[in-house]
């Protein structure tokens, strides 16, 4: 039992972070507004969770310009994808245990 709990990743233990990772698992990349729209959160809230995931280097940030407007895109890193997969497996096991 103890080993299963260890695989539950603390970084993902939040609805919005889980949401960001879910979107980036199935999409090559997503920009800030797309994430905001899909998750239904405020700018500040989303930015802080993005920061948390970035600090673990689970996601990668690509800044670019479309014309004169800055556009920031996010993508999951290989490390992030693996960590998220492990987290999902742990969740599944926890649910099947009981």
């Amino acid at each position: 039992m103890k080993s299963i709990i260890q695989n539950i990743n603390k970084t993902f233990d939040h609805r919005i972070r889980l949401g960001i990772m879910s979107i980036l698992m199935v999409n090559e990349e997503a920009d800030f507004n797309t994430l905001k729209e899909l998750l239904g959160v405020t700018d500040g809230n989303l930015a802080s969770h993005i920061k948390a995931l970035e600090n673990e280097s689970y996601i990668r940030i690509e800044k670019q310009f479309i014309g004169k407007k800055p556009n920031t895109k996010y993508a999951a890193t290989l490390e992030g994808k693996n960590a998220f997969r492990q987290h999902l497996e742990a969740l599944e096991k926890l649910i099947h245990k009981t």
């Binding site: 609805r15 879910s22 979107i23 698992m25 999902l88 969740l91 599944e92 649910i95």
Partner: peptide
């Protein structure tokens, strides 16, 4: 959590 993940993956 798992339900949310599944939903977001298909909606996105």
């Amino acid at each position: 959590d798992l339900k949310d993940i599944k939903e977001l993956m298909s909606r996105s």
